[in-house]
Amino acid sequence: MELRQLQYFVKVARKQHMTQAAEELRVAQSAVSRQIKLLEEELGVNLFVQKGRNLHLTSVGHLFLSRTERILTDLERAVSEIHEFLDPEAGEIRIGFPHSVVLHLLPTAVAAFRKDHPNVKFKLRQGTYNSLIRDVTKGEIDLAFISPFPEKHEHVAGDLLLTEELYAILPPHHILSEYQSIRLEQLKDELFVMFSEEYSLRTIVLEACRRAGFTPRIGFEGEETDAIRGLVAAGMGVSLLPEMALADNGLMQPTKVRVTEPRVTRTVGLIQRAGERLPPVAEVFRRFLIEFVQGELKP
């Protein structure tokens, strides 16, 4: 069994198409087909089944894929650690984040870190709560900002960075926009602009509304804070967003109003795979981030 056979297998499994996999690998399709066939013969099983124009994994193929991805990820990490041992300042940090964190915290942290570590590279991946935990668990990223912070989890561990307040955002000419603070109950008859179901902020907002005694009417859904803010500013409804997501100073902005009853917050943390040491440069960045966030939050 050769390393390239495993690499070809993973690529075909992800693309579900022999030709597309060969194009990304920049090798002939016949070479990919032959290596997959040799791999199947050595294992004594069929890893794929043809369905129309696509190749789908068999049940044993799915089992083999999960193990193979872990092997290749660990090999990639081992090579990176050797490079970092030879030159720690030339390493790469793979970090994931939800969209609401990238707007302010991540860019300023990376910029500050690179002042003292100019040769360190960053590989960034945006994701949702579940996808970020999955990527950390599979070893595809070293660290991930995540919200809410999972206090107890079988596969990831980390540090709670901050607890952040969520504000009501309203159209600029809304009747409540001049108030310094409101009760969430005052928005019970409004149309809400919400994140899609896979986003944790949606769950936080729904739970807050439940505590306030109502179920929000959802008029629009989005996947990025820019879209949420823009729709609210255009008068399409109201919403709740964390303060970190309201740092933009663009032309079209909603009004921000504090919610006092109930007080709505979210936790933001930094996670890594449980039971494993980070690559040296990632560990340096993890420690830097904790100190950086604490400094940013000082009055």
Rank of each mutant, 00 (worst) to 15 (best):
M244V: 06
E190G: 06
R258A: 05
S66K: 04
I133K: 04
F288P: 01
S239K: 12
S30V: 15
E178T: 11
M194A: 03
G237N: 14
Q50C: 06
Q35A: 11
V60D: 13
V120F: 02
M236H: 11
S30M: 05
P279G: 14
F64W: 14
Q294Y: 09
L170N: 04
G222P: 07
F64A: 00
P118C: 00
T215P: 05
G269E: 05
S30A: 06
E84V: 05
L278S: 01
E154V: 03
K298W: 15
R273L: 12
G127R: 15
I271G: 07
D74T: 03
P150S: 04
S177N: 10
R258L: 08
Y167Q: 03
F97M: 00
I93P: 00
E165L: 02
F285V: 00
S196K: 14
E261H: 06
T163N: 11
T255C: 08
Q180T: 10
V27F: 09
E185K: 06
G52R: 08
V136T: 12
R114H: 01
E198L: 01
G219E: 14
V49G: 13
Q5I: 09
K115L: 10
H117L: 12
G275I: 09
E190P: 03
R183T: 07
D87M: 00
V60T: 12
E276A: 05
I36L: 07
A234W: 14
E224A: 10
T128E: 01
R94V: 08
N46L: 08
L63I: 05
E92S: 01
L55Y: 15
V156Q: 15
R26K: 11
E296R: 05
L184Y: 10
L278Q: 02
D87V: 07
L25A: 13
R287T: 07
G295S: 09
V264L: 04
L75A: 11
L65P: 09
M1Y: 12
T163M: 07
K152L: 08
K152G: 01
L86R: 14
E81W: 07
G222R: 09
A233Q: 10
P262A: 15
K123R: 12
D116M: 02
I82Q: 02
V257A: 04
Q50H: 15
K256P: 06
G237F: 06
I141N: 07
